[in-house]
Design a protein around this nucleic acid. Structure first.
Lengths: 136, 136, 136, 136
DNA sequence: TTTT
DNA sequence: TTTT
């Protein structure tokens, strides 16, 4: 038995990237910042920002494509996954990502169509879970 | 405002490494496995194991040094932190770790001194939180 | 947007109760204890136990009926729900429960058939989520 | 070993109540709403609101007294506690509350002094944890 | 009513 | 490199 759970509330750093696999499956990646403020030994206020790579599949990716923009505040629930790849020198490299199981928009960047999109967002809210049975 | 929270329950892969910084601060690293089982399209049961790098500071590191062993089941609560370093070819590399804020032992590998250590573990249980104010 | 999430690891106080609604839907209730130990001002070790009412629906209820026993350690992920009812004097009363979305068995009470049940438990493990779309 | 953790993001229903115990310890109570939307069998969109009783001690209570207002969105991390009391008919009653370990303000109700208070809030942000060692 |  |  094990538990692998991540809960994040943070802000989107750049507009998400969304691509579609051969079979039509959507995959989105989101850069999400969380920051933490503390005082160091000299009493100075230090803000430390952490950047997270979020991966969203299928329905969550499609929602992301339509509604998630740079600057928005998101709630993400997911799990850690480290995958390996080979760089150009042939070295094994590792990247740790958060695979989202649930995503909620806490704010929206207002744009021209905001009133209308607000409604859309509410319409789709109940579908914001990744209930597919594939584990990635 | 942001939230950066990780909750893990998993098994320790190898005995932890603990070192002491110049000032005497203890730092422990633990390799923790979580695994997830699912059926693929052919109905075969697939187990996918995820390895996490846990970093524990100060009191948590000292507890780790004394009691955490390969094979034990741990509950970890912490936060994600990605740090960068330069490899031998001078390339920037990134490693994502979970900095523990709380650690609980869900099982112990039984050894000769188990009865005695059981008691020790209980004695220290209330101190198993990293309440220091440094954010790393 | 809101989040209502509970994460518990605790021990089952009595064998669960399971009943079936008219339509055949299974509902299980589990009493789960969590305890917390601290030192009071006199340095005495105090253990405080908290009892939680867990409600599990459908597949989770059926798993509970088959495998969950008094004394077992469970991981529960769910959400808070307070429901009201009228007592015999006609006063409104409130009961707060945790509606489970996920349940994992961290230990089993060993019994005669343990080897065999062990296997069963593994067979059903992947189905331990409440993926139905009803919100209760 | 056990875990008793609650994570909430919701809105404050009425201005918090804050009182001071004989020894000067501050205690605040906050009514927090979370809501969940789903479609019933007829395809109608149903919103179900859940009200939570949050209890905050010491520093968190003082922050609450100064800054938390009706309508604000809060992030609360805490633990469940059910306490019993006797009603006027002498019956034992139970109330389940969430004792906060951490509180973060996700929004503020704008008032006249908002600019100035914004700064205050940031100044106190690092102290928003209940690090005292009393377990309630 | 559980467990360590 | 762990565990079930």
């Amino acid at each position: 038995m094990s538990v692998n759970k991540v809960i994040l509330v943070g802000n989107v750093g750049i507009d998400p990237e969304v691509r579609y696999l051969e079979g039509g499956t959507a995959v989105a990646t989101v850069r999400l910042a969380t920051s933490e403020t503390y005082k160091n030994k000299n009493g100075e206020r230090i803000t430390q920002t952490e950047w997270h790579n979020i991966v969203l599949w299928r329905g969550l990716a499609e929602i992301t494509e339509k509604y998630v923009k740079k600057g928005m505040q998101l709630y993400i629930e997911g799990r850690l996954r480290t995958r390996s790849w080979d760089d150009k020198e042939g070295n094994k490299r590792y990247t740790t990502e958060i695979v989202a199981d649930s995503m909620k928009m806490l704010s929206r960047k207002d744009d021209n169509s905001s009133q209308q999109e607000e409604k859309k967002q509410q319409d789709i809210a109940p579908e914001l879970d990744d209930a597919d049975d594939l584990p990635f």
